[in-house]
């Protein structure tokens, strides 16, 4: 790092991302088989199916998580699913509620009939296991303080047996807990995760413990393309591609310095 001070590397990346974001150009992306599988699975569910959307993230990852969450919500509301929102991180609770409420408004959905937000429960493992026994016992009231029994769309929902699938929107490893603990109840788990976490879930995806997954800003851009709309995902693609190229440039530069210093007999 002595050859090129860290600060210059940081400054270069900052300028590159700043400029490409300011350009606000959408880049066309090729849809990957992973995203196609996710889209096809959600599309194949019958109208009126009940899904849990779990906002398992913190505020920090919102720039990456938001386009993914919006794509999931839009597709679900387009398909007229009944959505139950939960959050296993305190910071994701309000974010999830706002996202659900705003997108529900776009599709004229009514709270209590078409979607409901149950909010946060501490200790994610205990919460996931408890919902497998009884969602009502885990959430006697929804996020707004309404009794579980008073919410029309929950009248026939007891536990995971009445749920078609869980979509875990996560910036960390919480989806793993949905797979490992929720999976005991034979519920389908769908992952909508940040790019850094994608390869973590590959083994679960290939063993069908996870049904489908989309990952990162690129996953969001691909999903937006399948839904036929523009969003944060496709807008961020230029910056992401530029950052990838910048890192490739840095790797090549680092190796040039390395081989030059080795030729001179010095140490890198």
């Amino acid at each position: 790092m002595q050859i090129l001070p860290r600060h210059y590397v940081f400054l270069g990346l900052f300028l590159l991302i700043g400029i490409t974001m300011a350009l606000d150009i959408s880049v066309d992306v090729k849809v990957s088989p992973y995203t196609k599988k996710m889209h096809a699975y959600i599309d194949s569910l019958p109208e009126g199916s009940t899904l849990i959307i779990s906002f398992d993230h913190e505020a920090s990852s919102l720039p990456e998580i938001r386009p993914i969450a919006l794509a999931m919500l839009r597709h679900s509301f387009q398909k007229n699913f009944k959505l139950i929102g939960v959050s296993l991180y305190p910071e994701g609770t309000l974010i999830g509620y706002r996202l659900m409420k705003n997108i529900a408004k776009e599709y004229d959905k009514t709270y209590g009939d078409d979607f409901v937000y149950l909010g946060f429960r501490p200790q994610y493992i205990a919460a996931i296991l408890a919902m497998g026994e009884s969602i009502e016992s885990t959430y006697p009231q929804d996020y707004l303080g309404n009794d579980y029994n008073s919410i029309p769309m929950l009248s026939n929902i007891q536990n995971y047996d009445d749920i078609e699938a869980v979509i875990s929107i996560a910036d960390g490893s919480l989806t793993t807990h949905w797979i490992e603990y929720g999976g005991q109840f034979n519920i389908k788990i769908l992952g909508a995760v940040t790019a850094a976490m994608v390869t973590t879930y590959d083994p679960y995806l290939s063993s069908n413990q996870m049904t489908a997954m989309i990952g990162g800003l690129r996953g969001a851009a691909e999903y937006e393309k399948l839904l036929g709309m523009k969003g944060g995902g496709s807008r961020g693609m230029l910056a992401q591609s530029a950052a990838h190229l910048y890192i490739i440039f840095l790797v090549i530069l680092g190796n040039i310095f390395y081989f030059r210093s080795r030729k001179k007999g010095g140490k890198s």
Binding site: M1, V9, F10, L13, S60, A243, Y246, L253, G254
Partner: peptide, 26 residues
């Protein structure tokens, strides 16, 4: 809270750049 947390998360991109430069040598 949210912008501060996002800022620290965003540092990851900068550190990935510096770590790639330093670490990925043949």
């Amino acid at each position: 809270q949210a912008p501060m947390a996002s800022t620290v998360f965003a540092l990851l991109a900068f550190f990935v750049a510096s770590a790639s430069f330093r670490g990925f040598r043949a």
